[in-house]
Design a protein around this nucleic acid. Sequence first.
RNA 1: GGAGAUGUCGCAUAGUUGGUCUAGUGCGCCACAUUGGAAAUGUGGUAUACCGGCAACGGUAUCAAGGGUUCGAAUCCCUUCAUCUCCGCCA
Length: 426
Amino acid sequence: MLDIKFIRENPDIVKNACAVKNFPDIVDDLLALDVRVRELKTITQTKTAEKNKISKEIPTATDKAPLIAQSKAIGEEIAADMEELAEKEAALNDLMHRVPQIPDASAPVGADESANVEVKRVGTPRTFDFTPRPQWELLDMNGWWMPEKIAGICGTRVYALCGELAELALAVQTYVVQKLISKGFKYIECPSITKPQTIFNAGHFMGSDLSVMNNDVFMLADTDRCLAGTAEIIINSLHADEILNENDLPLKYAGYSPCFRKEAGAAGRDTRGIVRVHQFNKVEQYVFCKPEQSDEMHEHILNNLCEFMEAFELPYRVIANSTGDMGFNKVKMNDVEAWFPSENSYRELGSCSSIGQFQARRTNTRYRENATGEVKYVATLNNTAIALPRALVPIIENHQNADGSVNIPKALQPYMGGRTKIGGKH
RNA sequence: GGAGAUGUCGCAUAGUUGGUCUAGUGCGCCACAUUGGAAAUGUGGUAUACCGGCAACGGUAUCAAGGGUUCGAAUCCCUUCAUCUCCGCCA
């Protein structure tokens, strides 16, 4: 959500944001409603003030009856205005929730991902002296999963990791969490069951009608709860309605949670293997900071993800996502993509996003500035730290040997009991 | 899930026969005074949002949330939510 004052004063900037982000331009409708809402507020408030004044005179008045009648009459007028006000305010509110965040000037302008720009490439994809196996073959031959069995028990797009690969997943997660803790992140294990409103407050969805998320979010039948797609959603609301102390910023969280996605629009894509599943585990970096710290924090959490790529010895690249690709609530976004030998391409492992004050307005998360005493909305940012099992795919594919075994990156070996290799025994 | 209790301005509390409650007090915090400096003490201040106004300032709303009764609600009624205690169930 944007600041209504900003929209009033900069309608052209907002219109442009709608255009480059591919969202409908509703600015004129919104501003017209805004004018009417303010008129009605002024009218009702003036009348209420008058009524309050009369009510206050009643207890001491000698002749109460005329005052009571007068107050009652004003009350009826107010009720009529209030009805229109409530209606117009709800409409305004809905439009306010349909205005996208203004993209950063640095973001490439374009309608979709084809306009994305590669900004950095690290490492070189390995040249294999044997035919590398895709993830599913490595999983099969090492007994690291049981796809048919699990599909039969639980349905498709879910997985079970077995044996050493499951251990490796734990090692990766522990490595990442420890690293983030050492960098001043507060580790938090987040719930996955939440209220729809909480998801809405993260600003991924437009408008005021919560049912729009039914396509993407698993609702829990016969309850008012749903399954969260990421810990970002929970952490985003962690300081809702609070006024934080400037000295406590930036607040950095590393949130772990199981993540649930319907993947409704992905039918038929990535059906094999473990890259796209309904349920996975993720550690998310999430930062609350002053708006002027936002760029610095963006670099910080982006670098953390890059460091993980390097620790896992993965060739990777960083993308600057275009305005049309970055989504409704974002100022700027950088995907980090690792090399997937089986696909002969780079593929997203994490996504670093600056949200500005967009989410903070929805959650009402603010801080008090020491120097001025002013209360301001915080800026928020989020980035994947590690998403599992997807991140295991480039690790096993890039580090595989001809016999199907997989070398463990040095950084992870301490978390694997000193082992240097897994699999390949069959 | 069953029974009961509670939910007030950062924290702790007063206020529940509806009307100077524009919510009192204590603590905390800020400023000033006092002091060589500090403690202690004293005085004053101490919310947020929105509307109007160049501004000073004025107004409206907020006593968990929403609705209702009333000329008037922190106080009465209804609904929801949260917390606590006991029971049930259970990792």
